[in-house]
Design a protein around this nucleic acid. Sequence first.
DNA 1: GATTTACAAATGGCATGATTTTGTAAATCA
DNA 2: TGATTTACAAAATCATGCCATTTGTAAATC
Lengths: 205, 205
Amino acid sequence: MNAEPAPTVRVPFQTAARNLLRETVVTAVEDLVRARGWAATTMSDVAAAAGVSRQTLYNEFGSRQALVEAYVTKEIEGLTARVTEAVRANADDAHRALRIAFDLFLKLASNEPVVQLIVKDAEGGELHRLLTGLGQALASEQVATLIPEVWPQVRPDDARLLAETLVRLAISHALLPARDPAATAHDMERVFAPFVDELLGRPGA
Amino acid sequence: MNAEPAPTVRVPFQTAARNLLRETVVTAVEDLVRARGWAATTMSDVAAAAGVSRQTLYNEFGSRQALVEAYVTKEIEGLTARVTEAVRANADDAHRALRIAFDLFLKLASNEPVVQLIVKDAEGGELHRLLTGLGQALASEQVATLIPEVWPQVRPDDARLLAETLVRLAISHALLPARDPAATAHDMERVFAPFVDELLGRPGA
DNA sequence: GATTTACAAATGGCATGATTTTGTAAATCA
DNA sequence: TGATTTACAAAATCATGCCATTTGTAAATC
């Protein structure tokens, strides 16, 4: 009951093709959402914009709901990737890393279609729930993994707590801005600096 | 151009009567919202439940929108009053005060009709925006006033920053709970303890 | 001063039918 | 083989008109 003739180079190619397809489709969704919003975007629109058949969409994503989730997931992962990059580049100064990461995130978020649609009150329900739900979960996990990687002395549990708290505040400020990104980032650095120092092993503690 | 014959006891009485009216009406709204939600509650319903005429409602509140804002405002002020009470009762230990306040808030919030409607996804738009907007503003101000009153050594700017940050996290956890209130409150105490120590004048700083 | 009554305007269902869109399956194509 | 095309049923969305309700305001009445 096993007729496979030993896998060659074919499997990795198919995987790459699949990823390329998903990438292309989700990018098409991004353009359409930016232009007309998600509610006014149909599966046919997406198929046409991506240059594939509508069926391929269903074969790959299964449903419209799954597609928008993949889209939001990609947006979030794009943001966290940029933030992660900034954190790594400032690994020598955790305070600065925190401030720059927050500032960068808020600036990027204000240009995100999803965030803009929610703030503008258009399509608040669907996307709002996805951003807070998925966004909180995904970003928390990413940041919770990043922290002990850059600062190994931080215990995983503490990293998780810090990550979740920072992400909650980041989303809160993205959706309901208090001041400009720079000022908010400065405030967040001020609030979290003492806790961060404790996690990193403060000299006098 | 001043024909007032010296104010007697009449003005305070009228004020008291007005407050009583508003109190009665908003309490009626609270009951109706708890029973049917806000969308299904009409001005006639409120008038009947409060035992006043529909006109009195308009004379006092002006519009349906203004009424629901008064209602949400009262709910928020009710919550912050309870939290304020708890903080004052624990003024001798800021860490404990922070934890107990957070725990109490999350428990009270889970029984708030407004919070329940939002979490249940019913009427998400209207009330969600009111709770985050009004709630954030009102609660922040209350807490920002409370802190320097209980701990005078905290500078007003720091109090404002701490208050706004705590309120954002409180609302975030009320609308998207991570764990049970007790665990979350414990986490918040752990995160903010170092910053609070700094504001209170840490021994070794 | 509040209530009742009256009323115009806006809003909110609701029934209807047409249209679009979703999601699935089979046939076709390269 | 895998994607496309075609076909199709079920569901969702939309446009329409209509009716009932509700909002908000004003005047009359208690």
